[in-house]
Structure formats: C-alpha cells, structure tokens
Design a protein around this nucleic acid. Structure first.
Lengths: 156, 156
DNA sequence: CATAATGTCGACTTAAAAAGTCAACTTTGT
DNA sequence: ACAAAGTTGACTTTTTAAGTCGACATTATG
C-alpha cells in the first residue's frame, strides 16, 4: 500500500495518453476516463510536464500528449517522479542509504535491498506500450462498448 | 520507503531476540541494542506479544523472548502485523482488492500484482534464523568488539 | 479585436496517519 | 514490603497525503 493516490493517478493518466497513441487529450477527458478529480489532475499533469513525460498545447483544441513513444516510457520512470526512492526503507536506497543505528550488523538491510531490486526490475521492464496493448488499446476513436469488448475477447 | 518506522523497529527488535537465541531480553536492553525509543518500544512489544511472536515474563528478571524457533518466524509475518497488506496499491491486494474505476481495462494492476508477489516471496523465504546468522550471531554474552569483529571476518 | 476554451501557477485547507509520550496499573522475585 | 519488571490506554505532536481554489496566460476562431 505504498503507491500514493497521486502516483496511481499519474500512471493512469499516462496510460490513457498511451492508449490515445499520439493524439492529444484534454485535461477533462483524461479526468473522465480515469476518474481522477479534475483539479487534482491539473497538479499532476504539471509535474508530468515538468518531468518531460508529456507536452501540452494551450487554447481551444489544446491538451496533452506523450512526449516520447510509449515504449520508451517505463513505469519506473513515472513512479519515481511521484514516489521518490523505490527502496522500502531509507537504509536501503541506492543513492543515499541512511546509516542504520543498530549495534549489531543489521542483516535486514540485505533483504530490504532484495525487495528494492525486485521492485525496480519489474517496473523498469514495464513500459507503456506493453501496458496499452495489455489494456486492449491503442484504439482509434472508440466510443461504443462493442468494439472494446471484441478487442478484449480476441486477446483472450 | 513504505516500511514504517514502527515496522522497522519491530523487525529489529525481533532480530535482537533471535540473536539472543532463546535467552530473554528486558525491554530496555532491546531498546539499547536497536536504538528504539523505549516508550515506543513498549507499544511495539505489546503488539508482538498479542500476535504470539514473543512471550513475556513480569517482575524482576522478566523480559521478552521469542515464542517460536527463529526459523519459523518469517519477515513476512512480522511485516504483515504492522504494515497490513503487502500489495503496493489497494487494487492489487490478495484478499480484498479494491475495484478500479478506470473506464478502460486497467492493465497496471497486473504489474502491481507482480510487485506484490515478488515482495511476498522475498519476505516469506527470509526467516529470523537466517537473519541472525547473517548478522554474525547468535552470540553468547557478547560485550566487546573483538569477538564481534572476528565472527564477522570468519564469515567473509 | 473579443471571446471562450484551454493550460499554468501557487497558495491554501482538510484529513489522516505516523511517531512518540506518559501516567497509572499489575505482576512477581527477593 | 519493595523494587523491577511488563501492561494498558489515552494523549499529543508532526508529517504527509489529498484535494481545492482563484487569478492568470495562451491561443484558435469568428
């Protein structure tokens, strides 16, 4: 339970854009598709933009789109933007492990590092092209359920 | 960074008891060895006792000791007591996954489940006998650094 | 140029969880 | 009796998460 709501929202927003495959989505469209509170989404899109994940266009007809091909965007990247270090505990971060005050050598650290590395490995190999495909997309102009249902069926 | 300080403390306390290998430790001894705030440790030991991990004796000469052989106590067990579900996100818990509101099939869930399963696997195969051994223990009445240092050297 | 539809920014609020403290109490060995 | 333990539950403080809001900037369209 360590993925914050904000991170969850961010990954869902990026997934929505990946499924849109290059076309831009307006903020409120993303909000609707993903059920993210619109005013909160603003904040999140700002951070994604700042991190170079999405680019935006203003004015009528504006919106957001991915700034890179989906296969180049890993889940690890997005999670790190919102979540900070992926280690389960501060003594086991890769870049700045906090010293452990235990008197005896703390053998727990090794295990926390295993968890960290396993987590990172999974998130690094999961890119948004895979995720979009797994979701049954990319779709071109989907509006009715039939099309969606069929594309899902054909995958099973 | 999802292991709370409390969970961290709890695992360290159990490790200290595992290293003590059957002998009992007083609350303040555990607090010293692990640098846990003594009054906070009270709370934690209470929970460990309630969960059947440790047993206690009152009065002078009292203290805590493990209620089972260390190899029967997994890290997973302790973490669950203090941390709740091990899934990174509520839609990916094993027992009560929260429904996801995404309109399209949310393919992220699969990856969160991978992370969950990898985490659980690591924590389940890590028991406190291994941890105590890895820490260089169990020791009988260690008080000087020399002994500690030597036992570590012989392991490397 | 006016307007409306968009994104941008930063300060603000609220709610919840984490972290830690404390005092009064119970048990038990000597 | 007394002192050295553990027990209990309520309390406080701090931090983080989660979300809101209003004023502003940009731009396509008529």
């Amino acid at each position: 339970m360590w993925i914050s709501r904000k991170t969850d929202y961010a990954t869902r927003a990026v997934l929505a854009l990946a499924i849109a495959s290059g076309r831009s989505l307006k903020s409120h469209e993303i909000a609707e598709k993903t059920h993210i509170p619109p005013s909160f989404l603003e904040q999140i899109m700002g951070q994604l933009r700042g991190a170079g994940i999405v680019r935006s266009e203003r004015g009528p007809g504006g919106g957001y789109r991915l700034n890179h091909p989906p296969q180049e965007i890993t889940l690890e990247r997005i999670v790190r933007i919102f979540q900070g270090p992926l280690a389960p505990i501060s003594c086991a971060t890769r870049t700045a492990p906090e010293p452990c005050p235990m008197e005896v050598m703390c053998s727990l650290k090794e295990t926390w590092e295993e968890v960290r590395d396993a987590t990172i490995a999974i998130l690094e190999r999961t890119d948004f092209e895979k995720l979009a495909n797994r979701a049954g997309g990319p779709w071109l102009e989907i509006s009715d359920k039939r099309q969606k249902t069929e594309s899902l069926k054909s995958e099973v």
